[in-house]
Design a binder for these strands. Sequence first.
DNA 1: AATTTTATCGTGTACGTACACAAAATAAAA
DNA 2: TTTTATTTTGTGTACGTACACGATAAAATT
Lengths: 355, 355
Amino acid sequence: MITIKEIAEKAKVSAGTVDRVLHNRGGVSKKTEESVKRVLKENNFTLNVIASRLASRKKYHIATLIPKHNSSNLFWKSPLLGILEAAKEVEEYGVKVTNFLYEQVSQSSYIEEGNNLIHTKPDAVVIAPTFYDETKDIVTRLEEKNIPYLFLNIDLKGFKNLSFIGQNSFDGGYLAGKLMHLSTGGKHQILIVQTHLQDHNYHVTKKRIEGFTSYYKDQGTNLEIVHFNLHSLENKSFVKEGLHSVFSAHPHINGIYVPSSRISTIANEIDSQRLNQIRMIGYDTTAPNLQSLKEDKITFLISQKSFHQGYQAVLCFSDLFIKKTLPLSRIYSPLEIITKENISYGKGYKKGRPL
Amino acid sequence: MITIKEIAEKAKVSAGTVDRVLHNRGGVSKKTEESVKRVLKENNFTLNVIASRLASRKKYHIATLIPKHNSSNLFWKSPLLGILEAAKEVEEYGVKVTNFLYEQVSQSSYIEEGNNLIHTKPDAVVIAPTFYDETKDIVTRLEEKNIPYLFLNIDLKGFKNLSFIGQNSFDGGYLAGKLMHLSTGGKHQILIVQTHLQDHNYHVTKKRIEGFTSYYKDQGTNLEIVHFNLHSLENKSFVKEGLHSVFSAHPHINGIYVPSSRISTIANEIDSQRLNQIRMIGYDTTAPNLQSLKEDKITFLISQKSFHQGYQAVLCFSDLFIKKTLPLSRIYSPLEIITKENISYGKGYKKGRPL
DNA sequence: AATTTTATCGTGTACGTACACAAAATAAAA
DNA sequence: TTTTATTTTGTGTACGTACACGATAAAATT
């Protein structure tokens, strides 16, 4: 591995000059710049990242803006943990991460935390952009200051985000269709349970349902769908009663598809006798969902490895700072199929790669 | 982050002394050692890995001993690629990797490459221990020289390997049982295709079949198994004829389970009409298997992320050298369920973690 | 007590890069 | 031409650790 000093010798300049062209810091004449670049190429020089990091006293600051999780909606716990894990690992590289958590259902909270975030003058921002208009606001101000940002989990269109990290919702639904199709024989009478939440959630579930039905269409299988919309899942007896009346009206339902992370809430309100004859498919490995899976109440969960999503978001920017590498414009998370039988192997993922 | 120099001041010694206790290089009196350690603890000092690597001129050498892959048996291509990827990434940390590839069916080749390996005096060794007795030989010599080694893919017992990286075969079979059970309704008449290969392969497939049948037993479902043993898969027409006679004798087979990575070879010799009524489940995402999956010839593949296995093996030792961290004694790979619908998301896994 | 041996500890330099500052070279203005 | 401004280049130090070497103190030997 050739060093800057050696390059300098070969190019008959000083190490400082080589450094200047390497970081195009300016102050170098056209002529020498080109000759140095030539020598760099000829010896295919690569920067020693380790020495570089040691020498650089520059600190980088990543800020995140994601929903707060709570006991009834645990989804955002996992990405946060991924972020924290990554934060720990990049700390010694001079990268610091600060998290701004907003109430998922509150625009004002979103704006407020967004403001707080901007005031800390971060070098990069990770956003889970729940609300469209408010996001436009925040992003405009980021762009004014030339602060790069990426979207996590929600693929809002029409923005100049550096990247998107998340799942392809349609494909996630399509896969659910396949699994449901495979595991329910005979007539396919499927119940789809939706809750009315925020905008983005609606988009995700809509796309998933599109994917789900597309699979059946592609297979040419006749599919009877029963839709069941719930305003809220907080009131358990309310959920139970609702389900009860649905089953009364449609006694031959043999599959339930919940295109959100809330399937366990549904599964828990169905008595086990009926549950035995129904395939349940949902999303995300939240603790309650995993519990239901273990208890055989759920057949399949489709995971997007949301821990990893958070992890990657931080790593993206860290790589951008340290290694000057650009991330892919969209990083799709895997569609992992989780069943009771492989549940324990999902977690133990060792990460990899040194910087 | 507190530095060695600062620790030295607080402990009223020189940086050199702190360095000595940190690496227990000896030459420090009991008294000062303890006091230094105390200060280290009190300020919960952590070594600056970056500076450490820069300062250390030590080179590390990892050698691997794994089977060569070829067009008819592609399995070992993927771990090798993982190893190479990891090798590239740890290169700048002074870690070099050399691969010794042996013929999977040849003891003598195994021994020969093992000898070559030992002569390079590696600092650590990754072995896919195909043959028991020969492994005993090689390992004994490694232990004499105090060279740590780990087993990849094959969990040979009775050795002092630092770790094992691979899949839990029984669980892999159990999961296959679940998937087969779910996707075949009515009577369960399953064909299990085995090939007689080496010892270890026999162990793996045996365990998988145990797991497979265990699932059915646990479910209380009646399972009729038809066993079909093949000496070789090289001769396609031979395979075809064999299958033909099996189907003649057992016309109601509705599932085929191939507890190895060779399912595509089987699938390709079954005509599509019959294939439509049969669920096929096998292992490993080799190129031909993926191809068959795309063509809807295979229902499920269970992947062990063998790329990642190779990757991890190198990282294990790299971490051992650089960060002095011990790996887990067994690192189980995930049981990933791959279908036509999520196939494209398996690959794009970004790794993580800087050293 | 003088000397040698051994155990213990401190000092200095190197690793490869970043960056501030000084120095030199060139261009512009007088 | 001399002076000043500007551009271009070189030098030195710091980052935090590893390790060789030398220095000192303590112990052992004569």
